[in-house]
Computed example of a mutant assay.
Amino acid sequence: MPPTVRHLPSLALVHNTPPFPWLIEFFHPRRSRLRATLLCLVSLLILTTYVCLISSPVLSPGHLLNPYSSKHHNLADTWRKLAAKVPAPPATQWRPDVSLTPEQELGALTAFMVALPQNVIPTDIDPDQPIDPQLVLDFDTRVPEAEEEIADIVLDVWIKNPVVVFSKLRSAVSRELKSILQTMDLKPPPTIFDVDERVDADVLTPLLFRLTNSTELPILLIGGTAVGSIDRIRELNADGKLKEWVIGAGAVPGSTKKPRKGHR
């Protein structure tokens, strides 16, 4: 009788196969990232397809602009109600440019010329018409304080320049007037503009004639008032009234300073 062969259990390591090997493979870190990316792409594709093919009639511009659409009508009503609750901003009160009187125009013009040597009158204006205030004033004349600003400018220019002369450099009469004022030795000294030396002489001369009712140069202003012709100036000087007028305007005789030249 053949001997019985017994099979002893093998001592080799036995690899146990997991029950769900595909599940472990699915959750493998590297492969899971790839699958997550793929799922995102598929989801995005599905969403795009839905928006473009399924919901396009709802989101189309024609639907939003359709006045008969109930949603559009409700949205418009909502906006109108909200707008009605918002208080309207206060209306801006715009004022027209002020109109200068001849006295104000003369003061503003003199202040403009005294301020800077570069300040010249545009040659394309009509000297027979009132000058645009914006040409000689450095602020917006439409503001409510415009009248006060103009009054301050005119007052200031005559206080600082009580004696102003618009003359000709090459004129015997102008030299005579300058000599009369020089003998008074005024402080502050007269402000002198040699009009014929300026680039705007052609428009400035008739403009000064209109504002001072003069017909020729030189023109003498004392406290912003035109004295008159050279004959009247001679008479006033001979009577001593010219010096009294000058003193009343704020100039003081007896100074050692020479006459101040205006900007050309």
Rank of each mutant, 00 (worst) to 15 (best):
F112M: 03
E149P: 03
R232N: 10
I247T: 15
S10G: 03
E103N: 11
P87M: 02
P29C: 02
S99G: 07
G62C: 03
L100G: 01
K187Y: 06
T191M: 12
G254Y: 09
P144A: 09
D156G: 07
S55D: 15
H7C: 08
R30L: 14
E176W: 14
L64D: 10
I150G: 07
V165L: 12
V252W: 09
L211H: 03
T49E: 07
P189C: 05
T110I: 11
L221R: 08
S10M: 03
L137E: 04
V58A: 15
P127H: 05
G62H: 07
I131F: 06
I125M: 15
V86I: 10
P127V: 03
K85R: 11
R198F: 05
D124N: 10
L207M: 06
L13E: 07
D156A: 14
L8E: 09
T123K: 15
R33F: 07
A111N: 15
V154E: 02
H63N: 10
D196E: 11
Y68F: 14
N66E: 08
L208A: 01
T49G: 14
H28Y: 04
P9S: 11
I125N: 10
R170G: 08
R210Y: 03
K160P: 00
N213C: 15
I46R: 02
V51W: 06
S229Q: 09
K160Y: 04
H72F: 12
V199G: 14
P57V: 02
S69F: 00
L181C: 05
R142N: 09
A201H: 02
N119W: 02
H28G: 00
C40G: 14
